[in-house]
Computed example of a mutant assay.
Amino acid sequence: MATASKPVPGRDETAVQRADRNWNELAQELRVTQTGTQILTAFLLTLPFQPRFADLSSRQETHYLVLVGLAVLTTALMVAPVSLHRFLFQRGRKPEMVRVADRLTRVGLITLALVVIGTTTFVFDIVLGEPATWIAAAACTVLLLALWLGLPWRIGRSDPLE
């Protein structure tokens, strides 16, 4: 995403218009990630109330608690731009708001990837046992790296006019 201070080739817009556009684009992205993050966090928070939760090993309990912590952190990071917008609304600080919200969202995507990988491995560990956990972790990591980093990197390297 272009920041509010850098001009975008092919766009004739003021810094304020650019900040507005960047904020709107970021808000659309957040709508998708916030919902998924909140559902994943809610799923994790309900697990202790399931009958089989008492059967977890101490390693699995630790894994679970790390996941809950990461999920809460991810939710906080993904919702923080909303709070930022609410407190800075109509104060003429949109370029700064876009820059900070972009950083929060980037870190949130990293923690979201960790939660998705961790939750996948947790479920595979419970259902199939530890050997399947490593396969699930590797597959999930490769998938997220390919789609969340590899694909954008590849498209970013190609000619935009192709």
Rank of each mutant, 00 (worst) to 15 (best):
W148L: 15
R21V: 11
A139N: 06
E61Y: 02
M1S: 11
L67S: 03
V68N: 06
A2V: 04
M97A: 09
T105R: 05
L47D: 03
T33D: 08
T141E: 05
I126R: 14
E162K: 14
G150K: 13
F43D: 08
S57F: 04
P9Q: 07
A139K: 05
E13P: 03
V16N: 02
T105A: 09
L56Q: 03
V82T: 14
A54Y: 00
R31Q: 15
F49P: 02
N24H: 11
L128P: 01
I39L: 14
L104T: 06
G108H: 09
F53R: 08
A132L: 08
I110Y: 07
A54P: 02
V127R: 13
G150A: 11
A2Y: 15
L44M: 10
F124S: 14
T105I: 09
A54K: 12
T35N: 05
E13C: 01
Q28C: 00
R157L: 15
L65C: 01
V116R: 08
L144N: 12
A15T: 13
E29W: 03
F53Q: 07
S57Q: 04
W23Q: 14
Q17S: 02
L77F: 07
Q17G: 03
S83N: 12
T75M: 13
P131D: 05
L77I: 11
R18Q: 09
R106N: 06
H63R: 11
W23P: 01
S83R: 01
Y64C: 02
G108V: 08
L77S: 04
W134Q: 06
P48W: 04
D125L: 09
A101R: 07
T35P: 00
M1N: 08
G118D: 04
D102C: 00
V107D: 04
D20Y: 06
Q28P: 00
I126G: 01
Q38H: 15
E61L: 12
R93Y: 07
E61V: 03
R31K: 14
A71K: 08
L128S: 12
P51V: 10
D159F: 13
D125Y: 07
M78C: 09
S158E: 14
Q50Y: 04
L104V: 02
V98P: 13
V8K: 10
P95Q: 05
R21S: 07
C140V: 12
S83T: 14
Y64G: 04
F122N: 06
F87S: 05
P51L: 12
R154S: 11
G108Y: 07
G10E: 12
A76V: 14
P7V: 10
F122V: 08
L73I: 14
T105Y: 13
T41P: 01
L30T: 05
S57N: 07
L65V: 06
L109Q: 11
L151F: 12
Q17F: 03
G10L: 10
P160F: 06
L40R: 00
D55I: 00
T105P: 05
A80F: 05
F43G: 00
E96D: 14
T111D: 07
T41R: 02
G108Q: 07
S83M: 13
